[in-house]
């Protein structure tokens, strides 16, 4: 049956079973592959997206939950996401890059909630996202840097 998903401000009509996780709706039906599969059980955060601004592990949330809501993926944009991108660039953060979609989305969610996060805030907000390459210290610095960039822009 056809369903409508709103992703990054665009509407997509897809024919899909209701219990399909949002991750696979986005990747295999809509065709946006920036959101990654890592574990399938909410353990690694590679599949992080925002649903109406709320951080969600898309591998474990049925697609039907997102119908009628606005999804933001790494292909999308937001004020905080753009500052984070710039900071990620300044800090040359990624190695293999695979987890970074999820890292950036999780960091966006953090900055949406906490204007100037402490290291402890970052520990709490970012520990659901695994980076096997081990870029954590750069991610931490980049989040602080994004706040700096944002403050400079005001």
């Amino acid at each position: 049956m056809n369903k409508i998903l709103s992703i990054n401000g665009k509407l997509y009509t897809i024919d899909i079973a209701d219990d399909t996780p949002i991750l696979w709706a986005i990747r295999d039906f809509v065709g946006l592959t920036g959101t990654k599969f890592g574990c399938g059980v909410s353990q690694c955060g590679a599949c992080s997206i925002l649903i109406d601004g709320v951080l969600t592990k898309s591998c474990s949330m049925p697609f039907s939950y997102a119908v009628g809501k606005e999804i933001t993926t790494i292909e999308g944009t937001s004020e905080n996401l753009e500052f984070l991108r710039e900071a990620w660039n300044d800090g040359n953060v990624p190695q293999c890059g695979y987890c970074q979609s999820g890292q950036l989305i999780a960091a966006t969610s953090l900055l949406d909630k906490v204007e100037n996060p402490t290291d402890k805030d970052i520990d709490n907000a970012m520990s659901g996202n695994i980076c096997r390459c081990g870029t954590y210290s750069r991610i931490r610095k980049a989040i602080h840097r994004a706040v700096e960039l944002k403050n400079q822009s005001i």
């Binding site: 592959t33 920036g34 959101t35 292909e75 990620w88 890059g97 950036l104």
Partner: peptide, 23 residues
């Protein structure tokens, strides 16, 4: 010297194509 990755833009926009992204 300190050089940034040539792939940064793709990494931060979800546009780097990994094996699993092949369509």
């Amino acid at each position: 010297k300190n050089l940034k990755s040539v792939d940064l833009k793709d990494f931060t926009h979800g546009t780097a194509n990994y094996g699993i992204d092949v369509r």
